[in-house]
């Protein structure tokens, strides 16, 4: 019995569904627009569509919960996001810790010559961890 959701009143549920559908649709259009631009050789148009979608979608995600009394996101959503983010960072951290020093050592020893993509990925991961550290420090002090 408890495994099923009981039907609600359900204006807030409807609003929540519409909210998520709109946000997901905007991001989907943005990504499809970017890919279509790359495939058809209209990179600038694709980029404009992507940037527009990303900004509009992010704006709605940021503003909508503040502009309505309907709980579009609640404490459980926040906890799920936090757990998923923690898991993602944990996986990245373990992978980074096990791979990055080895790449540095092997490169210094002249055993490997990592392609620019690997160097870029290492820099990206390092930047991500740095950003996380700064964000953690800010959140901890507020």
């Amino acid at each position: 019995m408890l495994d099923t959701l009981t039907p609600g009143t359900d204006e807030s549920g409807q609003a929540r569904r519409v909210y998520y559908r709109v946000v997901y649709a905007i991001f989907a259009i943005a990504i499809v627009g970017l890919l279509a631009g790359m495939v058809t050789g209209r990179e600038l148009l694709g980029t404009i569509i992507y940037c527009g979608g990303a900004w509009i979608g992010s704006g709605i995600t940021f503003l909508a919960p503040k502009l309505t009394d309907v709980p579009l996101q609640d404490e459980r959503d926040t906890e799920l996001y936090n757990r998923a983010s923690g898991l993602t960072l944990g996986v990245l951290f373990v992978l980074g810790l096990s791979v990055i020093p080895a790449i540095y050592v092997l490169e210094a020893a002249g055993r490997i010559d990592p392609p620019p993509e690997v160097t870029g990925a290492i820099l990206l991961a390092s930047g991500l961890f740095l950003l996380w550290g700064v964000a953690y420090g800010i959140v901890k002090r507020r």
């Binding site: 009981t6 609600g8 359900d10 807030s12 929540r16 996101q73 459980r76």
Partner: peptide, 13 residues
Amino acid sequence: SQGELAEVVGVTR
């Protein structure tokens, strides 16, 4: 219903 209780306490169903 779960939805009604959710509305009362301000969370999702």
